[in-house]
Simulated scan of single mutants.
Amino acid sequence: MKNRPFHLINTVLILLCCQFGFSQKSLPEDQLIGKGNPDFVERDGYKLRPEAAKAFDEMKAAAAKEGIAFQVVSSYRNYAHQNRIWERKYKAYTADGLSPQDAITKIIAYSTIPGTSRHHWGTDIDIVDANGNANGDLLVPSKFHGDGPFCKFKAWMDEHANDYGYYLVYTDDGNRTGFNYEPWHYSYKPLSVGYLEQYKKLDVQQVLQEQKLMGSAEFTPEFITRYRTQNILDINPELLP
């Protein structure tokens, strides 16, 4: 393994921040659910919280030296943006004949219910390699494996992402439930762990009922309990409080 003293020091600092809470600033409840007026750095096609943006830029520069060009597919998404995704999919699936319950089940294979997305926090980002020259939908797991266009990107991230505080959220652990495997979705741990700790204290049932989402009649207490356990909390253990 290469000698990376700077990155090792950076990793130690990140771990110390997590342990002693220096980085885990609390958020107002409205920002936890994608509303309010967050403080973001916005450039090069992404929005992130300043600390997460700084680490991302350092990681991006290091990857560029290895011939990898980070392409941001998605970063911060506010509530309204997530709701547009939700409504588009819900309308399409029910128009195809799916019941509301089956439509929701299909949506939450990859997409979150508005108000529950990690992308609301400004700590999570979907990225690929622009030098992969991929065609069609970029966010397909097979493109990150075998001879896929993003294999070099994935190998680099597997080795280096944690040095910058970024961790894969939805891993390919066969025992994990909830959202499907997403080799493109990374979270900035020094902030997101604290935000998840805050989010766990919210009454998700009440939050979702207040929003009056399409299909919300299906959000029974049993559904919410299962969604919270599997989709919100069954993630990479490194990102759990």
Rank of each mutant, 00 (worst) to 15 (best):
V140F: 01
G194I: 02
P100W: 13
W184L: 03
I113C: 09
T94N: 01
E66D: 15
S75R: 06
L98E: 08
G136W: 08
E197D: 10
Y195F: 13
G178R: 06
I85M: 04
S75W: 05
K152D: 06
D172R: 13
V140Y: 02
I85T: 05
W86C: 01
A155I: 12
Y164W: 12
G148F: 10
H185E: 03
I85P: 07
H185W: 10
R176A: 15
K106F: 01
D102P: 04
N135R: 08
Q101H: 10
T116V: 08
A161T: 13
G136P: 14
H119D: 00
I127N: 10
L98P: 01
G97W: 01
F153R: 06
N78H: 00
E87H: 03
F179W: 08
V169Q: 14
S74L: 03
D129K: 11
L98C: 00
A92S: 06
N78I: 06
E182M: 13
L138E: 01
V73C: 11
L138G: 09
Y164C: 04
V72W: 03
R84D: 09
K143F: 05
E182F: 10
T171K: 14
Y181D: 10
P141H: 05
Y166A: 10
V140T: 13
P149L: 13
F150T: 08
I127T: 15
D129F: 01
D137P: 02
G148T: 07
Y110A: 10
Q101M: 11
D124K: 00
D173F: 03
L168N: 10
D137E: 11
N83T: 12
K106W: 01
N83I: 01
G165Y: 09
I68R: 05
K152H: 08
P141G: 08
G146K: 02
